[in-house]
């Protein structure tokens, strides 16, 4: 009853819209542009080959070392997923920090953040900034506004019924290596945080999932409806030391 955070939800920015998942690649880089501006978007985890290709290019762009994870490598799908999500999380975090420390002047990132917000109390406060002349007061309001910047969520989409259990060559994948399970593990191991992080007793991640018959690949799976497991991953959310 004690240390439970009452909201048990990540802090949400004041935007009242989000960008849903589109296809397998259309929204995979969206968070880089919109999360610092407080808008939530979704990364599709279906295609780990694409995620790996994207990571190889983006790593170079961001000046981050790229260590390839080959298809044949151990636990490749989960590790590729994790590596991609971590790359995006780090870059978004960097951009958020940059935005927070940018000056309140026309054309700056933080100015854009507040311009885009819907009409809320926070936005009204930002508007009032232009009327503040006292430097001390201005500094206080500015720092309050900087603290009020809440990045958009980086969410992931796992099509849980797309849980292929064979390689392209027709070899059965080892236990826990089917597609959706591997994606989930990759997400769980990543820096992106889930609701689970606010469990009362912090503990380290240990994700070991069994593929239940309901999710395993069968001829009938292709006829049943796929559904997306949507997991909200707040970034820059109070860390609670759980891996």
């Amino acid at each position: 009853m004690s240390n439970w955070p009452l909201h048990a939800q990540p802090l949400q920015s004041e935007h009242t819209f989000h960008i849903p998942v589109m296809g397998t690649g259309f929204t995979n880089t969206t968070a880089l542009a919109v999360a610092p501006l407080g808008v939530s978007s979704v990364i599709a985890l279906a295609d780990d080959t694409l995620l790996e290709q994207q990571r190889s290019v983006l790593s170079r762009t961001f000046g981050v070392e790229y260590l390839p994870i080959e298809t044949k490598d151990d636990d490749a799908r989960a590790r590729r997923t994790r590596a991609y999500l971590d790359l995006i999380a780090d870059e978004v975090e960097r951009r958020v920090a940059q935005l927070r420390s940018s000056p309140f002047e026309a054309g700056s990132p933080i100015q854009r953040y507040f311009e885009l917000l819907p009409e809320t109390a926070t936005k009204a406060k930002w508007r009032s900034l232009s009327d503040v002349t006292d430097p001390a007061v201005r500094m206080r309001v500015e720092s309050e506004l900087r603290a009020a910047v809440i990045p958009g969520q980086i969410e992931v989409n796992i099509m849980t019924k797309l849980d292929g259990a064979f390689t392209l060559a027709g070899v059965p994948k080892p236990a826990n290596q089917s597609d959706a399970v591997a994606s989930l593990r990759g997400f769980a191991m990543s820096k992106l945080r889930s609701i689970r992080d606010c469990l009362p007793v912090p503990r380290r991640w240990s994700v070991s999932m069994r593929t239940s018959p309901a999710y395993s690949t069968s001829a009938s799976a292709s006829r049943s409806a796929t559904f997306a497991l949507h997991t909200s991953r707040p970034l820059c959310w109070p860390r609670r030391g759980c891996g």
Binding site: T24, A46, D47, L162, G164, F166, T167, L168, G170, V171, P172, D179, T217, S218, A219, A221, S222
Partner: peptide, 13 residues
Amino acid sequence: GIVAFDTEFSPYP
């Protein structure tokens, strides 16, 4: 092969 789920003609999908 992400949506390879048909086993009509092969032992694996």
